[in-house]
């Protein structure tokens, strides 16, 4: 339990928090819609798990046997782009309102960048099962970080905050403070 928590906090502190910074762009528009945040988080987790499992298989059966590890970057980019195109088209078909939010918050490019970043974080050097456990932990860390920020988004758009600070600079400041708190927790654990 303690090890899992430590792993989670370390993940949130390190790269997921950074790649989440990429999502700060979404703050420009209606990211404060809670249903959209939940939908986006859910689809992102599905995308991360699908891409990670496919990439883990490709890594074990294609890249390592033929000594092509460096080409893994291209496969990661391809997988994340295809899966996010898939999410875009499904959203377009299923729910017009969600598609509006998806389009207005530039979610395709933001999610594609996030997927690539999160897949870079995952360690594929172990077995398929280990990689998937890692992917699940990273997905959980992503969900925690996103949902924590989702509740802060609307407050960051407050007109009382100087326009020099809002919304991206204050988001990065918040990320910095959150990273500091999580770092302190991980040290104490």
């Amino acid at each position: 339990m303690a090890n899992g928590l430590l792993c989670l906090t370390l993940l949130v502190t390190s790269n997921v928090m950074l790649t989440n910074g990429f999502g700060a762009l979404g703050l420009q528009r209606n990211k404060s819609n809670l249903w959209f945040v939940l939908y986006n988080t859910f689809t992102m987790i599905l995308v991360i798990l699908a891409c990670s499992s496919l990439y883990a298989l490709a890594y074990v059966y294609l890249l390592i046997p033929y000594n092509l590890e460096r080409l893994g970057i291209l496969i990661i980019v391809m997988f994340s782009a295809i899966s996010n195109f898939g999410v875009l088209e499904i959203t377009k078909l299923v729910n017009k309102e969600m598609y509006y939010y998806y389009d207005a918050t530039y979610s395709f490019v933001v999610n594609m960048g996030l997927t690539i970043g999160i897949m870079f974080v995952i360690d594929y050097s172990g077995s398929f099962g280990e990689s998937m456990v890692y992917a699940c932990l990273v997905s959980a860390a992503y969900a925690v970080a996103t949902l924590l920020f989702a509740f802060a988004y609307s407050r960051m758009h407050n007109q009382k905050i100087s326009r020099i600070f809002r919304p991206v600079p204050i988001t990065i400041l918040t990320m910095s403070i959150m990273a500091m708190i999580i770092y302190a927790i991980s040290i104490s654990i």
Binding site: S14, G21, I164, P169, I172, L173, M175, I177, A179
Partner: peptide, 22 residues
């Protein structure tokens, strides 16, 4: 060398340049 300080420096730099930009 810690992440939180790096993010803090980025935020300060962006606030400063944003002030000039605005």
């Amino acid at each position: 060398g810690q992440l939180y300080f790096k993010l803090f420096v980025i935020a300060l730099l962006i606030i400063l340049t944003n002030f000039i930009y605005q």
